[in-house]
Simulated scan of single mutants.
Amino acid sequence: MTRTSIASWNINSVRARIGIVEKFLREEAPDILCLQETKVECGLFPKAMFEALGYGHIVTHGQRMHHGVAIVSRLPLAEVRKYDWQANGEARHIGVTLPSGVRLDNVYIPAGGDIPDREINPKFGQKLDFLARMTDWSGGLNGTPTVLTGDFNVAPLASDVWNHKALLDVVSHTPIEVETLARLQAASDWVDLGRHFIAAPAPLYTWWSYRAKDWEASNRGRRLDHMWVTPDLKDKAVAHRIVQPARSWERPSDHVPLITEFAF
């Protein structure tokens, strides 16, 4: 049995922030990095830096200027799977199988716009429907040991946001989104590693808005990024943390990385 570390990060344009991605890989050296919101077509993904640091196994599901997910790895990646849960060409979900046989899925769930009403705001309905289709997919995993990570764009718990009451009507923390995400979680009894290691009601955030003049002082964060595992992997997860200092790096993403260390 070996140790395998898996990181996840919504990078908000991998080419624009390649410098901080390199900094993260040099300092933290995870075995695998899952990226969301890469904003680049597959053929233009900046592979050279990753390969120079030993991440020779790269799979991408991208599109021009929007969305996009990728997995870069020191370990071989097999059985690459790409999904389009909205049937609209948006690149938001990629999956692979690791040498251990563990399945790894990396997803960028839609943000859902600004108004939490599917009639007024079709983007909100698309987000709920995306989660519903993922729930059907989750229910069909049939016991395959799986890690599901990425930007879920939902902060489910009261302690996952800076002010629960103030954000109940704000997209990412509305009751209907929380309920919909809970159905996805129940579909395979997913274990939320963030809260497995850092139990509520301790505050835990992974995203701070660019609009804040001093994000750290105001600390108006939300936990939008997650790493879940099927129950058979719960005891294989030996450590989990967020890399909060990354929010202050030069030209940062508004999200910070997560890292989980597994014994498999």
Rank of each mutant, 00 (worst) to 15 (best):
residue 170 V to H: 14
residue 53 L to V: 11
residue 138 S to E: 01
residue 181 L to F: 13
residue 111 A to I: 00
residue 29 A to K: 14
residue 152 F to D: 00
residue 35 L to W: 10
residue 260 T to W: 07
residue 243 V to R: 09
residue 19 G to D: 15
residue 103 R to L: 01
residue 79 E to T: 08
residue 75 L to Y: 06
residue 3 R to F: 13
residue 214 D to N: 15
residue 80 V to H: 01
residue 146 T to K: 03
residue 85 W to M: 14
residue 207 W to D: 02
residue 60 T to H: 06
residue 120 I to C: 00
residue 246 A to P: 04
residue 10 N to V: 11
residue 1 M to H: 09
residue 249 W to R: 07
residue 6 I to H: 06
residue 164 H to I: 03
residue 22 E to M: 07
residue 248 S to M: 00
residue 196 H to Y: 15
residue 64 R to T: 07
residue 108 Y to A: 07
residue 248 S to V: 00
residue 96 V to D: 05
residue 179 E to N: 13
residue 17 R to W: 08
residue 97 T to W: 00
residue 218 S to Y: 01
residue 260 T to L: 05
residue 149 T to P: 00
residue 208 W to C: 10
residue 244 Q to M: 11
residue 1 M to F: 03
residue 228 W to I: 00
residue 29 A to M: 08
residue 203 P to Y: 03
residue 253 S to L: 06
residue 180 T to Q: 15
residue 139 G to D: 09
residue 94 I to Q: 03
residue 156 P to A: 13
residue 134 M to H: 04
residue 26 R to N: 06
residue 231 P to R: 01
residue 191 V to G: 05
residue 57 H to K: 07
residue 249 W to Q: 07
residue 9 W to T: 11
residue 138 S to K: 02
residue 160 D to V: 09
residue 98 L to T: 11
residue 130 F to R: 01
residue 89 G to E: 04
residue 177 E to I: 10
residue 3 R to S: 14
residue 242 I to K: 02
residue 230 T to V: 10
residue 159 S to R: 04
residue 171 V to M: 11
residue 112 G to N: 01
residue 56 G to F: 06
residue 172 S to I: 08
residue 77 L to M: 12
residue 122 P to A: 03
residue 43 G to K: 12
residue 137 W to S: 02
residue 256 V to G: 02
residue 161 V to K: 09
residue 209 S to A: 12
residue 189 D to E: 15
residue 27 E to F: 02
residue 48 A to C: 03
residue 70 A to T: 13
residue 78 A to T: 13
residue 4 T to I: 15
residue 194 G to Y: 03
residue 193 L to Q: 10
residue 91 A to R: 13
residue 264 F to Y: 13
residue 102 V to I: 15
residue 111 A to W: 03
residue 197 F to S: 06
residue 251 R to E: 07
residue 14 V to M: 03
residue 212 A to D: 14
residue 264 F to V: 13
residue 71 I to C: 07
residue 165 K to W: 09
